[in-house]
Write a protein that binds this DNA or RNA. Structure first.
Length: 454
RNA sequence: GUGAAUGUAGCUCAGUUGGUUAGAGCAUCAGAUUGUGAUUCUGAGGGUCGCGGGUUCGAGUCCCGUCUUUCACCCCA
């Protein structure tokens, strides 16, 4: 028999990892709820027609397609099979695909359920997504996203609240050294038009986005190769090279490009932050932030944790036309943020930020020495459970040594040893595993002590 | 999708120019200790050297293919 393996880029999660993942999920979920977002879920599979064309050419290639059920070649002319290539065959044999993100299914959901939705609609969604990417560090083929989106309002308070949520989540997770990068597609568009590059925004944005990774020289080379003239490139770097506070950058842009809507929006978002009693700590207006996803139209965000070599752990932005793709009459503006749990996990692991208590376990193991005491142990465990204390009975007749080893490995807090003496006197032998101290006490006393600590 | 590296016990890794029966630490199991874990001592089990083919008298070692993982590109959480 061959050893079983996992599909490339997928992973199992053991109890320790799950405890830590749950900790992240809970933290994010509680903050989302604190800001009035409501949960929804959508299917793992969508119709391919829903997914294709929403993420750019590259994105389409990364979609996992699901082979049609039954005889999927039935309706294809056999003659054409000989000449057809896989690119043209795919849409004929696969009409479903695994979701690539949570935003597009959400837009689909909004269009399909608009009569039941109260706008502005604030939803959050925590589910896995799949991308047929080549895996590497911090990049998986199956990973969880935690999205919060507001749809049906173009108020910039949403942008401000998104930043507040990011800060709240990272504060609760204990991540302190990070920055929320903020930019606006309108500013990038203004830059593009100043460079006389309208129509070539795509390649321009992609090149700009790489600036902090490959450096100015390489970006210049790439832009030259893509047909931008030196004068335009100089103008670009003159703008990007500007160092200063968020305000100073905005003022600089104002002088160079007049008061564009993008600049106004960013200024307003930053001001709103102060209206909420918060500040611009961790928030960095970054003109070089571009982001690839094609559907963004307004503010865009990205979160980078410093000191860890991993991509962005969170990203999002405003999209004005996403629902219109599914229904032309539907023109609701939306804005959202997505947290990548798997990358946040990697970051926290690398920075050693997981609290010790995330290991889930039981409070008490009742150990027994023979048949009679095992029944007594069951009653003890049942009583403890009735008081909300998690308790286990060691299932087999085994040496005490073995039972204690089990408790040790599971990091059980207390062990109750039950033998003839304990049954006769009702004085249970209670051992605290961490300290190794042991004392005799009645069950009531044990319940009181643990309840006090919990 | 393009280019490169990697794979030896459950884990981390040794293994010389191709040469006898592939090793270590940790982990596991058993005993020392028939009512006491995490510390100590003794012993034991555990391998298709990723998989398939080739070269050779002989391959963990060299060659080809393939899969996995990792890295860079592309893109992204």
């Amino acid at each position: 028999m061959e050893k079983p393996t996992l599909p490339k880029g997928t992973r199992d999660f053991g109890p320790l990892q799950m405890a830590r993942r749950e900790y992240i999920f809970q933290t994010i979920r509680s903050v989302f709820q604190l800001y009035g977002f409501q949960p929804i879920e959508t299917p793992a599979m969508e119709n391919l027609s829903t997914l294709t064309g929403k993420y750019g050419e590259e994105g389409d290639q990364l979609l996992f397609k699901v082979l049609n059920s039954g005889d999927f070649l039935k309706d294809i002319e056999r003659i054409s099979l000989a000449s057809i290539d896989s690119k043209n065959l795919a849409p004929q044999v696969a009409e479903k695909g695994l979701r690539y993100d949570l935003t597009v299914p959400f837009a689909r959901y909004v269009v399909m359920n608009r009569h039941e939705i109260t706008f502005p609609f604030k939803r959050y969604q925590i589910q896995p997504v799949w991308r047929a990417d080549r895996p590497q560090k911090g990049r998986y083929r199956e990973f969880y996203q935690c999205d919060a989106d507001v749809i049906g309002t173009d108020s910039l308070t949403c942008e401000a609240e998104i930043i507040l949520m990011i800060k709240a989540i990272f504060r609760r997770l204990g991540i302190t050294d990070y920055s929320v990068k903020l930019n606006h597609r309108g500013i990038l568009a203004g830059l593009a038009s100043a460079m006389h590059a309208s129509g070539k925004e795509g390649s321009l944005f992609v090149a700009i986005d790489k600036l902090d990774k490959i450096g100015e020289v390489a970006v210049r080379a790439e832009l030259t190769e893509r047909g931008f003239d030196t004068k335009a490139i100089d103008l670009l770097f003159q703008t990007l090279a500007f160092k200063g506070s968020n305000q100073e950058k905005l003022d600089m842009l104002n002088k160079s490009f007049a008061d564009s809507p993008g600049v106004k929006d960013v200024r307003a978002v930053l001001q709103l932050l102060h209206s909420y009693g918060d500040n611009e700590e961790h928030v960095e207006f970054d003109i070089s932030l571009a982001r690839g996803l094609t559907y963004y139209t307004g503010c865009i965000f990205e979160v980078k944790v410093h000191g860890v070599a991993i991509g962005s752990v969170s990203g999002g932005g405003r999209y004005d036309n996403l629902t219109a793709i599914f229904d032309a009459r539907e023109k609701s503006s939306g804005v959202g943020i997505s947290f990548g749990v798997d990358r946040i996990y990697d970051v926290m692991d690398a920075l050693n930020l997981f609290p010790e208590k995330t290991q889930a376990t039981s409070d008490v193991l009742t150990c027994h020495l023979d048949e009679a005491s095992s029944h007594y142990a069951m009653r003890v465990a049942a009583t403890l459970r009735n008081h909300g204390i998690s308790a286990e009975v060691y299932p087999d007749q085994a040496k005490l040594k073995k039972q204690l080893e089990y408790a040790d490995k599971k990091k059980t807090r207390f062990v109750v040893v039950i033998g003839e003496d304990e049954m006769r006197s009702g004085q249970l032998t209670v051992k605290e595993m961490k300290t190794g101290t042991q004392e005799k006490m009645k069950l009531d006393e044990l319940i009181r002590r643990i309840s006090d600590q919990n």
